[in-house]
Nucleic acid binder design. Structure first.
Lengths: 217, 217
DNA sequence: TCTTGTATAGGACTTAAGCCCTATTTTCAT
DNA sequence: ATGAAAATAGGGCTTAAGTCCTATACAAGA
């Protein structure tokens, strides 16, 4: 069993130290870095490629949500757990949209935090029980809204269609035929997809799609 | 636990029926199709995408080795187990080269065949104990041959280098710089790679590389 | 109502990608 | 020694891919 590498992000040195202490006690976890603001968080995440980022939301400059977006954009395989002081439900959906996999209060019991880290490393997602109700109602709202968006990386439904075919090895012409649209439209979608995923061409997009499990192998 | 889907290929209806009977008794296995020759085998394999193909070697027309190559070329994730009447070691290495993962005699005990199927589905490889010696000596020969070839799909060492970078999302120019060769040479290698893998462009090659585990994610 | 997001598509352009040849050099296997 | 495979590279060519901009139509949120 490999240790789970964790990057701690918080603007308060005290909080960072506390978290590091708690996590260091744990056998299967190793803290590989600490960042004191959003910029450093993104920088370190890309450099250290940790399994998990513990991300404080309230930070001066680039906040936790922005940092989450940036990291997820570059390395979708990194799991991000958001930390908040109190129940700030206004951030919840923004965070989910940004790609965070967990949302925990800072006064969480250490053993539960550890559990959450292991869970997210396994690909699961966590929110505090007090918020599950919110989640469900939001989910209901979204699905009644004839399934608007809620796609990975902010991709639209159509963009996901196109990306899937790209990851299948199809050319623009082939995609156009399969989706009954013009090659021009396919190109437009692709330009948007590349921009959203932060990649340069279809090959990188295909790889990204596989890595971030937008498509299955 | 999902059932393992199996395609049976043999030109003798009796053998097919026998195998199907045996395998149908097994809980975790479901026979999804049968083919009576190499052409049908390739056709059905691509259509049904079974986990495992049980492939007879001696068939009129496209034989088992050719069919194995074709299937592996199109869908490297399908596991292929070769069936032979008697110890025909002259085919063994050809089969391994073609991408077969198992090599069993037709008079194998049913429970061992089942075991082999489960093993191959898990990504393991099997040859009869009587042939392991052959394997080892061949392996020794090849490695004494200063590690010549023995690369997936008949790719050369350099081609694997190039393919790895393609699957990393690099452009021809980037690959050229990293490998200290000209862009022209990269293109030449790529043309050869496409031909060998049976794909049309770098995106398909990248996907193929990931699927056939030439590169890791 | 006005605006925003999505899907569609065309014009016009640049360039990376890919193909087909030929050719040289090195390295091995025979 | 000789021949084959592998790695290198260039010429010359075609086309797919990708960018930037504009534009229309529709749906839905504010």
């Amino acid at each position: 069993m490999k240790k789970i590498s964790v990057l701690i992000v918080d603007d308060h040195a005290l909080v960072r130290e506390g978290l590091a202490k708690i996590l260091s006690m744990e056998e299967g976890i190793s803290v590989v870095g600490e960042a004191e603001n959003g910029e450093r968080a993104v920088e370190l995440a890309l450099k250290l490629k940790p399994d998990i980022v513990l991300m404080d939301i309230n930070m001066p400059g680039i906040n936790g949500i922005e940092a989450t977006k940036m990291i997820k954009n570059e390395m979708p395989e990194i799991g991000i757990i958001a930390l908040t002081i109190h129940d700030q439900e206004e951030y919840l959906f923004e965070l989910i949209k940004a790609g965070a996999s967990g949302y925990v209060l800072k006064d969480i019991r250490p053993d539960l935090l550890v559990q959450t880290i292991f869970g997210v490393a396994r690909g699961e997602s966590f929110v505090p029980p007090s918020m599950t109700t919110k989640i469900f109602s939001e989910l209901a709202r979204l699905s009644s809204l004839s399934g608007r968006n809620s796609f990975p990386q902010g991709l639209t439904r159509r963009e996901v269609d196109v990306l899937r075919l790209v990851a299948h090895g199809d050319s623009n012409r082939a995609i156009a035929k399969k989706l009954f649209i013009s090659e021009k439209t396919v190109k437009n979608h692709l330009t948007n997809i590349f921009q959203k995923l932060g990649v340069e061409d279809r090959t990188q997009a295909a790889i990204h799609a596989v890595k971030s499990k937008i498509v299955e192998l």
